[in-house]
Design a protein around this nucleic acid. Structure first.
Lengths: 248, 248
DNA sequence: CGGGTAATTGACCCGGGTCAACAGCAGTGG
DNA sequence: CCACTGCTGTTGACCCGGGTCAATTACCCG
């Protein structure tokens, strides 16, 4: 079975067999399993390892003193939480499991060795960091300018494209494992209004969401409402320059 | 005169004279001056250089098809716009001058040489990247959870701390060169409501803002309203490990 | 002094928040 | 197999923070 990290990075580069092997070694790092709502690492902790999501869904979140909570990023399998965190003295946010999650805890030295030895992998990791930053920007745009229905539609589009990129969605369908409250916390709205917005999307025939099955029935329609532009995910890569198999 | 980039990075590491010289060389790259509202680089452009702000204020922004605009980051002197951008095929956002700005356009090779030769500088640049990412997260929290007055107060606190870090503010006072419309676009609210919120802060005796002079009269009060926690700026560094002058 | 931009204010309205009740469903233990 | 518990989703009634529209004032600069 192919590692989700490799799948993800291969949207950008094409690795040699050696590269792939080196990346897959990362996943042999000690792994940890966290149950839903459990923290993988907490704000204030000193970061010692880099977390790589292998299975399940996690999120970054920040809280205000009075308990308001905002999810600032979603992690799907193949996502890496800040390759250079250990430079910082302490975490400025927490990372928590949304559903049961399996993470690899990669020690600093291992990443340093990997990047020292494999420039193509290093490039790919930079790309992944840039894409994460780009997603953050799009979320700022989302929260600052889009209204409820646009915001929620945009999030659904993003989730779909990202999952498809790591082979966990096809034909507009995927597993939606988290609660409306989670979604409300990522879109900066109340659970009540999130629910009404979802009802609205259902009534318009754009989505079908029952239990864990999520189906985007009318993707162009959803994209249209969301003003979704996939550019910011930077899926299309440069081709030959980064293609380890170009001469085979 | 000390470079703002060096000032900024020295909040994290302490450089040797050589490090400083190497960093200052960056500023000898060809520079460009942009007038207010002029774009430094546009969404869709192919990035070829890394922009370093030397003087003035700039911002990242994204626009929706229908013209709504969101500022997603503010750049002050010493800020570097994505050290690895040239990995991406095209810009997913624009960078524009808020007021007249002077930027150094650093070629890829120069950065590569610098990071290859100077590990301490490389570390510092990673730190700067992590801090930028952290600021983005805080903005997501700001937009998603804080209300108008909290949001605006938070932004003022952040601007003050960041300017102070590069020696452009002291005693709660600094130059506020941009318009309320700009601020509205960064806080995701309308200019009208931004104005009312500013009035409110004035009435409460927290700030004085007249022309370009901005004065935070009651910093603790502002911090309190904003629930501002400076942790996310990661100013406090590790000390000796990264101190090139520790034995002198 | 004229023209243009930025700030300010008033009147009105609506998207989304709040509060509260209720329904659906899974898991648990008897 | 059923009752109980607790969480998540759903809906209704009501309200308010912030948006909209439009007019007016202050300011800057040639």
């Amino acid at each position: 079975m192919v590692s989700p990290l490799v799948l993800k990075l291969e949207q950008f580069v094409r690795f040699s067999a050696d590269d792939v092997a080196a990346l897959q070694d990362l996943e042999r790092s000690s792994t940890k399993v966290c149950g839903p709502r459990e923290d993988i690492i907490k704000e204030g902790d000193r970061p010692t390892v880099v977390n790589l999501i292998l299975e399940g869904w996690a999120c970054r979140y920040k809280m205000l003193e009075d308990g308001r909570r905002q999810i600032t990023a979603l992690f799907v399998p193949g996502d890496l939480c800040d390759i250079h965190v250990f430079i910082l003295r302490e975490m400025d946010h927490s990372i928590g499991a949304l559903i049961k999650v399996r993470v690899a805890q990669i020690p600093r030295e291992e990443l340093e060795r990997l990047t020292a030895e494999r420039p193509r992998v290093t490039q790919a990791l930079w790309w992944e960091g840039l894409v994460s930053a780009s997603i953050q920007r799009e979320w700022i745009l989302n929260l600052g300018q889009r209204n409820a229905i646009e915001r929620v539609s945009h999030l659904f589009c993003e989730i779909y494209y990202r999952l498809r990129g790591v082979g966990q969605a096809q034909d507009g369908q995927f597993e939606m494992p988290f609660s409306q409250t989670d979604l409300a916390e990522t879109t900066g709205m109340t659970p009540v209004h999130l629910n009404r917005t979802v009802q609205d999307l259902r009534a318009r025939g754009l989505i079908v969401w029952k239990g864990k099955r999520f189906h985007i029935v009318d993707l162009p329609g959803l994209i249209n409402i969301a003003m979704f532009n996939e550019n910011y995910l930077h899926f299309r890569h440069e081709g030959a320059v980064l293609d380890a198999r170009r001469n085979t």
